[in-house]
């Protein structure tokens, strides 16, 4: 049983954090305050949904900006994924998403998006500097939440918490010095009251992505910057990796790039529910699935 549980809404989603170590009431209150303060710092830097954020400031004026101290892992992963996915995963998607209706005011009116500029045209990244060469609204939705889950995990570890479970709107990080695995239901993309399987994780991150919730008109929260459409060939997918940043980033990348290609660059396991309800997963994805074989076509 967790000694402390925090449930709250932040960065546009619902969080559940279980502290599995013993904490005094006082420590628990302090820990929660620290977490909320850290999320606020992250949000103020990277959220395109708030007027006072660094990202919003960058969108207003081209120039060279000093990046926050925690930006390097995030930007490095984006730079990597941009190359590997041929530009499909890009932080420059912000304006395109906003035009499609996913803007700071959640207008959710199906607009007509325009393609984002190429990385080389719009950005020059050399940590700790980021130069915005032309008007660009950055969006860190592809990997930001997973990274924030890691950051909170590190914050807990620094405070001596060794056993914790962090769920940032479905992006999960579970660390424990015991060898107790934790079971997580994998939500059915067509019916949130159902699961398609049970994952069992320990000292790793499990991140999921589906087009069923952040959806409006013909769009959902992932947009292909080349076709300007939201991918429909995948209903839901999950990735496990050592950390939330990588697991989250790869959930987005898998909408665009084959797992085999991504596996040349990263260490991860994955499961994909295709549009036809068929299941594809890597050999060691840590889950049992509820499936029926469509072998009627064969047997």
């Amino acid at each position: 049983m967790p000694s402390a549980q925090y449930t709250f809404e932040a960065i546009g989603t619902v969080w559940n954090i279980d502290i599995l170590d013993d904490l005094s009431t006082e420590q628990s209150a302090q820990t929660k305050a620290n977490i909320l303060a850290r999320i606020e710092v992250f949000d103020k830097n990277y959220s395109r949904f708030r007027a006072d954020s660094l990202v919003t400031k960058m969108a207003a004026r081209a120039g060279t900006y000093a990046l926050p101290g925690d930006a390097q892992p995030l930007l490095d992963l984006y730079a990597n994924l941009y190359k590997i996915t041929n530009g499909a995963v890009t932080p420059l998607i912000g304006q395109t998403l906003a035009q499609a209706g996913y803007d700071a005011a959640y207008s959710l009116k199906e607009g007509t998006p325009t393609p984002p500029p190429a990385w080389e045209e719009a950005l020059e990244y050399d940590f700790p500097r980021l130069t915005i060469k032309q008007m660009a609204l950055l969006d860190f939705g592809a990997a930001g939440k997973g990274y924030l889950v890691d950051i909170i995990g590190n914050l807990l570890a620094e405070q001596g918490v060794q056993n914790y479970y962090i769920d940032g709107g479905g992006d999960i990080l579970y660390r424990s010095v015991s060898d107790a695995r934790i079971e997580v239901a994998l939500e059915h993309p067509a019916d949130p009251t159902q699961a398609i399987g049970i994952a069992s994780i320990l000292n790793q991150s499990l991140c999921g992505s589906a087009g069923n919730r952040r959806a409006w008109g013909k769009y959902h929260h992932i947009l292909n910057p080349h076709s300007l459409a939201s991918p429909k060939h995948i209903q839901a997918l999950w990735v496990t990796a050592d950390n939330g940043l990588l697991a989250d980033g790869l959930t987005t990348a898998l909408f665009f790039t084959d797992a085999d290609e991504l596996a040349k660059h990263f260490d991860f396991e994955y499961a994909i529910v295709h549009a036809d309800n068929s299941l594809e997963h890597s050999a060691n994805f840590p889950a049992d699935f509820f499936t029926k074989s469509n072998s009627s076509t064969v047997l």
Partner: peptide
């Protein structure tokens, strides 16, 4: 299946 922990698409905010 009696599990309280679930992973899927991100829950949306009140906004």
């Amino acid at each position: 299946i009696n599990l309280s922990r679930v992973s899927g698409s991100s829950l949306t905010s009140r906004g």
